[in-house]
């Protein structure tokens, strides 16, 4: 399998007033295509920052990031926006749906940047909402949906453009156990059935169990990767 993510010696630091806060230290990581990787670690370890860098919504202070064959650290803002639209799907902890748009309209948003016709967009959106099991909720507004349903709409929005990479930041962090299970099952299905490469940040070991590989971040440093089977044996 070819590598879809290649992080080479990436560091990231922020400036707060005159104080430099180092978040990631010389990280290197490779993720194969079709992989489902969970990134774990305590709060402040830098896992969301690493996810943001890989997803192209933040820029590294140092190092090289090659994602889906593109050196994204070298792209300008406009090119990076286009790359994100074409290559990455995002799932957030708090769903981040647009409250004034229906489920259909929320999922359609990324397609507005494509050259698809209205009919083609409609077909894509309806098919995607069917995949996430919300074919009967297309005209519902976010406030009319449960947390789990909202997250499924967010997943539909993330995959509607058929991106090569799906990144999820604590996708079950705001959900009850049952809803979380549904979301994780859906993500597993997207990985196995639709061959999506998934990178998921989570605090939850149960959520991480659904991944095939788990990596840990501790104070900005990445530990060695562990296959889920090894973790399971230790629990």
């Amino acid at each position: 399998m070819s590598e879809i993510i290649e992080v080479q010696n990436v560091s990231k630091s922020y400036w707060r007033d005159s104080l430099e806060i180092s978040v990631l230290h010389n990280i290197s990581l490779k993720v194969n295509e079709g992989e489902f990787l969970a990134l774990m670690g305590p709060s402040g370890s830098g896992k969301t920052t690493l996810l943001n860098l890989i997803a192209g919504i933040d820029r590294p202070t140092k190092g090289k990031l090659i994602v889906a064959g593109t050196d994204i650290a070298a792209l300008g803002e406009s090119a990076l926006a286009k790359w994100r639209a074409a290559s990455v799907g995002f799932v957030f902890q708090f769903y981040n749906l647009i409250p004034v748009l229906t489920a259909f309209e929320n999922v359609e948003l990324p397609l507005l940047l494509t050259k698809l016709s209205k009919a083609e967009r409609r077909k894509h959106v309806e098919d995607t909402l069917e995949i996430v099991g919300l074919g009967d909720r297309i005209h519902h507004y976010p406030k009319q949906l449960s947390g789990g349903q909202e997250q499924r709409v967010a997943i539909a929005r993330a995959i509607v453009t058929d991106p090569v990479l799906l990144v999820a930041d604590e996708p079950t962090g705001d959900l009850d156990r049952a809803s979380a299970e549904e979301i994780l099952t859906l993500m597993e299905r997207l990985n196995k059935e639709f061959k999506k490469t998934i990178m998921m940040v989570t605090h939850d070991p149960h959520a991480a169990q659904r991944a095939r590989i788990i990596r840990h971040l501790e104070k900005g440093d990445l530990t060695e990767g562990v296959e889920y089977e090894n973790i399971k044996a230790n629990i």
Binding site: I57, E77, A81, A85, N96, L113
Partner: peptide
């Protein structure tokens, strides 16, 4: 503010 961040994340430009 968060919604605009979502739009940008999805690839919407300035």
């Amino acid at each position: 503010t968060r919604e605009y961040a979502v739009f940008k994340t999805l690839g919407f430009s300035g």
